[in-house]
Design a protein around this nucleic acid. Structure first.
Lengths: 174, 174
DNA sequence: CTGATCATGTAATATGTTACATGATTGA
DNA sequence: TCAATCATGTAACATATTACATGATCAG
């Protein structure tokens, strides 16, 4: 269901769009919370059109199709947001690796943690750049919460890795 | 690969265990980073046995089988931890919902956020209880990083939701 | 005219969930 | 003896990834 909801949500927030647009939007906005390839997005859009959650208009060049969310589509996301339960916990490979850190020797674990810190810093740079950008089109609102969450999440991860590394260093010195 | 690595990691951290044990261990330790049902775990263990990453011993009552990680198994997780790249971003339904918050009316969004806060508080209570527990068997180490990350993540989420709610309240009063 | 990007799709495979199925052992 | 829990599995279905496949349009 989540992919479907993500697509309906994007259509509702950004207005009519093609599968191609949505694939890009996915990458540039919601990517750290959910991902999907075009090979999953295109079929899903067609299914939703069959079910009346979106309408299709075959217009643009190169067989471009524009999808628009319908009343029923809007109702569907809304229901989902308001009534469905907390849902499955996240599947996060980074956290899994954190969990498995104790299987490594201290120096190895340290290496992994330092790489994590570098990755977080790189990601933070990107997100902070987006945050600073004065003209985020349609975006006072749209994606604001997600950006904020992304920043907080990355900082949290960075801090964790830094403190874990420090702790390992301390205990291997003694 | 991740499920496989999670299983090998658990076997390496906790010692030999049955599929049943591992299913339970999954739930009680690594659950917030990765999940798997027994219907996925049993076949994976058998596949790994075929490939020599674990050995099986059919012993206990009720056809219980005990799996032990092999040298090759250990090498496999180690490689994975040290050499494979940052990997796919998390898929987190909670964050997706956060992203879609602007599709709701302010009062509705507020309701969702308040529920998020309640959920986080409940989860924090559980995690803090685990943290306080004096006798975590084999666990000064095992699961420590993951627990810490879990706590940080939940607090981060809680803070985010609280601040977002506050912001919505403020702007709807004006 | 040529490389980048736009634009859509399908097929094979891998991963994950839900439901079905069975039976042994243990403790009250 | 009966309910809970231990213990393993398979099948059907849903979801997601990778690779294959095709071609139009645009900017330099």
């Amino acid at each position: 269901m989540s992919l479907r909801m993500a697509l309906l949500g994007l259509l509702s927030l950004s207005g009519p769009a093609s599968g191609y647009d949505l694939t890009k939007l996915f990458e540039s906005s919601i990517n750290h919370a959910w991902q999907a390839r075009h090979s999953q997005i295109y079929p899903e859009l067609n299914k939703m059109a069959d079910e009346g959650l979106v309408t299709v208009e075959e217009d643009g060049p190169r067989g471009r199709k524009t999808y628009t969310i319908t009343e029923e589509g809007s109702r569907t996301v809304r229901e989902w947001m308001l009534t469905t339960s907390p849902a499955r916990p996240a599947r996060d490979e980074k956290t899994l690796r954190a969990f498995l850190l104790p299987t490594l020797k201290p120096e190895e674990a340290l290496g992994v943690l330092r790489e994590t810190i570098r990755d977080c810093d790189a990601k933070l740079a990107v997100l902070e750049e987006i945050e600073r950008r004065p003209s985020r089109p349609r975006t006072t609102g749209f994606g604001r919460y997600a950006l904020d969450l992304g920043l907080r999440h990355t900082r949290m991860m960075r801090d964790w890795a830094a403190e874990a590394a420090e702790e390992i260093e301390r205990s291997s010195r003694s």
